[in-house]
Amino acid sequence: MSLFRNSSSYETRQASPVTAFIVFAIIVILSLYFGISGLIGGGKVSLDSAFESGMDKGSIVSGVPPYGAPQANLDYEHGINSITIGHEYYYMILSEDQQTILLVRADKHFGENFDSESYKNINGTSIKGKVRMTSNDVTAKFGELTQLDEPELKYIDTTYVSRSIKWFIIAAINILLIIFVALNYAIFGRNGRPSGLVGGIIGLLSVAGMLAAGYLLIYNILLN
């Protein structure tokens, strides 16, 4: 008899939403931190000055590159178990006298702004990005493919704003998930959930939100 009572109490035991609140809240806090810190720069520097005097990590560099690579010098692919998550595209840009090279991380279409023979900036495109350091893997890859054989490489990350936006999207999705869990608990109790068409739609949106947030989280971590 005691065995049946224990089984019954186990089946009717109500799950607490506290764990979900904590997990979602931690993700929100971390996402907001990385999103905000990613936008904050250590000062603004013109591209001409960066060519002449170098650039410091964290500074925001902007200007019009006179010359650049018409295609990515390095397409670094990130993935998990042969599943591609995202790409990092690195391009070399050159000063007016073509004596100084800087490294830029941009989207895959960035090279289309430069002539395939002269490397001139034919579209007059400008760049604005935050100075960062390449990862060890990217630095090693550049050592294999180019003459940029240095222990550390600085680059201008023109994707820093879009990367921060992704962090904010992750935070927003998890805030919505917190609200859903709270409303569900307040209306239906710990184990209750909406049923029927409404319940199916809410459940589908919740799963889609968690999958989207999970993908963006992995994407930002791998391509950080």
Rank of each mutant, 00 (worst) to 15 (best):
G143I: 03
P194E: 06
N123S: 15
P17S: 13
T100Y: 07
G42E: 04
V181R: 06
T139C: 02
S2E: 13
T158N: 05
L30H: 04
Y215I: 10
A140E: 14
S7R: 08
V207Y: 05
K44S: 14
A72M: 04
D48K: 07
G86A: 14
I218P: 05
G209F: 10
A208K: 01
S95M: 12
S59W: 00
G214P: 11
T84C: 07
K166W: 03
A212R: 00
S16M: 08
I156A: 06
S7F: 07
I27E: 06
G143Y: 02
F51D: 05
S46M: 01
V61K: 01
Y91N: 08
I122G: 09
I127P: 00
I22V: 15
I173S: 09
W167Y: 14
G192N: 03
Y185F: 10
L204N: 04
I122R: 07
A171I: 03
Y76V: 13
G86Y: 07
I40H: 02
G129L: 01
G111P: 07
N123L: 05
N81R: 09
L205I: 06
G209R: 08
I80V: 15
I93E: 01
E52I: 05
T125S: 12
S46R: 06
I40E: 09
P17L: 13
E112Q: 13
G58Y: 05
E88N: 15
L103P: 03
K141M: 14
S206P: 00
Q71I: 04
V18L: 10
S8K: 09
F180T: 01
I173A: 09
A208R: 00
S37Y: 02
V28L: 07
L94Y: 14
R163L: 08
Y90Q: 00
F110P: 01
N224Q: 11
I83T: 14
A106E: 08
E52H: 04
D48A: 15
R193A: 05
P65Q: 05
G124W: 06
V61Q: 03
G68N: 05
D149H: 09
K141E: 14
D115P: 07
S8L: 12
T134S: 13
I22Q: 12
A182R: 00
N174M: 13
P70R: 08
T139G: 02
S116L: 03
I60Y: 10
G43A: 07
Q147G: 15
L222M: 15
I127L: 15
G43Y: 07
I165Y: 00
P65L: 06
R193Y: 04
